[in-house]
Amino acid sequence: MRTWTLPLYWRVCLINGTVFLAGTLALLLLPVSVSRRTVVSEALVLTLGLAVMLVTNALLLRASLAPIDRVVRQMATVDLLEPGQRLPTGTRGPGARLVASFNAMLDRLEAERSGSDARALAAEEEERHRIARELHDEVGQQLTVVLLGLKQVQRRAPAELVEELELVRESARAGLDDVRRVARELRPGVLDDLGLHSALAALATGFSAHGGATVRRSIAPGLPALPPATELVVYRVAQEALTNAARHARATRVELTLQRLGDRVVLGVADDGRGLVADAAGAGLRGMRERARSVGGLLEIDSAPGQGTRVRLSVPVDPS
């Protein structure tokens, strides 16, 4: 059953009216009066009465209006990428109802954002899959045909052209390798075929082989199986962290760890680079946070100038 309560506007009017009524009754009932020429004692009584009225009015209004200031301050600092920021409800009254409504609004916004982020990330992964498939099936196949054709031409070409044709073949072969590497980065087939452990190992090896920092990996044995969506988030966060370490932090050594702590699996990526810089703290880090939230994970980033960057992602073993 819903209880009826006065709106905040009428509560303020009622509080002020009560204070003024109390002051009027005090003037009527108490043996005090004011002369035509106000003396010091009368001025003291009036001043004391006014102070009592102001203090009483302030104390009565504080319980109703103070929560509004807390809501205003929270609205100025709340970040939907950092879930769980709620105000204490406190006592009853319109202020408490306002705080409760504000917390309920944050619940709805976080739920809606989480759902929209999950749909956007699913669409992004689908688009990555499509582009990777087209690169592999279309561009990769065409480059393979070019390589085979150049090999046939090279066999029948004059001796003075063999060396030039070999250089062209090497360029085509390098292009084919780049296409395959990009396709693997867009859609890691090893993640679907062999699982997260092998995918992270291949990621670290490929990262070191293509001019990145030296990666030392430590993956604990016996880790529980994670849902495919969670494994993909762990892989993408590791991929983005390694990219930031080489591209932005200019790191030379990176340590990649994966272990279980309680009911969560924790991914750690720590580098010895120059720390997080402004050009790296944009869409990449926001994307990592959104991915983590889409599977109920928590992303923590610790960085200081000249002291490297540490990325820590913890995801629940049980998605429920």
Rank of each mutant, 00 (worst) to 15 (best):
R2S: 13
T5I: 03
Y9K: 01
W10R: 00
V12P: 00
N16A: 04
G17V: 00
F20R: 00
A22K: 00
L25Y: 06
L27S: 11
L28S: 11
R36L: 09
S41W: 13
L46V: 06
G49V: 07
L50I: 03
M53I: 13
A58D: 09
L59T: 06
L59N: 10
L60A: 12
R62N: 07
A63W: 00
S64P: 03
L65W: 04
L65Y: 00
D69K: 09
R70M: 08
V71W: 09
V71F: 04
V72I: 15
V72R: 15
V72P: 01
R73F: 04
Q74C: 07
A76M: 03
V78R: 12
G84T: 05
R86M: 04
T91K: 11
P94N: 14
R97A: 12
S101C: 08
F102M: 10
F102H: 13
F102K: 12
N103Q: 14
M105P: 00
L106I: 15
R108L: 14
R108Q: 12
E110A: 11
E112L: 15
R113V: 11
S114Y: 01
S116F: 05
D117Y: 07
R119M: 02
A120T: 14
L121E: 09
A122E: 13
A123L: 15
E124K: 09
E125A: 15
E126Y: 01
E126N: 11
R133A: 14
D137G: 02
L143W: 07
V146W: 10
Q152T: 06
R155E: 11
R156G: 05
A157P: 03
A159C: 03
E163L: 13
E164S: 07
E166Y: 11
L167E: 10
V168K: 05
E170I: 11
S171A: 09
S171V: 10
A172Y: 04
A172V: 15
R173Q: 14
R173V: 02
A174T: 14
L176W: 09
D178C: 08
V179W: 08
R180V: 00
R181M: 04
P188T: 12
P188S: 07
P188I: 03
V190A: 01
L191D: 06
D193H: 13
H197E: 13
L203A: 05
G206D: 07
F207S: 10
A209Q: 14
G212A: 02
T214F: 06
R217P: 01
P221Y: 00
A225C: 01
P227C: 01
P228W: 02
P228H: 10
R236C: 07
R236I: 00
A238Q: 15
A238K: 10
A238W: 08
A241L: 10
A246I: 03
H248F: 13
A249I: 02
A251Q: 04
R253S: 08
L256I: 01
L256G: 01
R260S: 14
L261H: 10
V265I: 04
V265L: 13
L267Q: 06
V269T: 03
A270E: 06
A270P: 00
G273Q: 07
G273N: 05
R274E: 08
R274F: 01
A278Y: 07
A278D: 15
A283Q: 10
R286N: 13
R286W: 00
E290N: 07
A292R: 09
S294N: 09
S294P: 01
G296Y: 04
L298R: 15
L299T: 02
D302H: 14
D302F: 02
S303D: 02
S303H: 05
T309H: 06
T309P: 13
L313M: 03
P316S: 03
S320K: 12
S320Y: 09
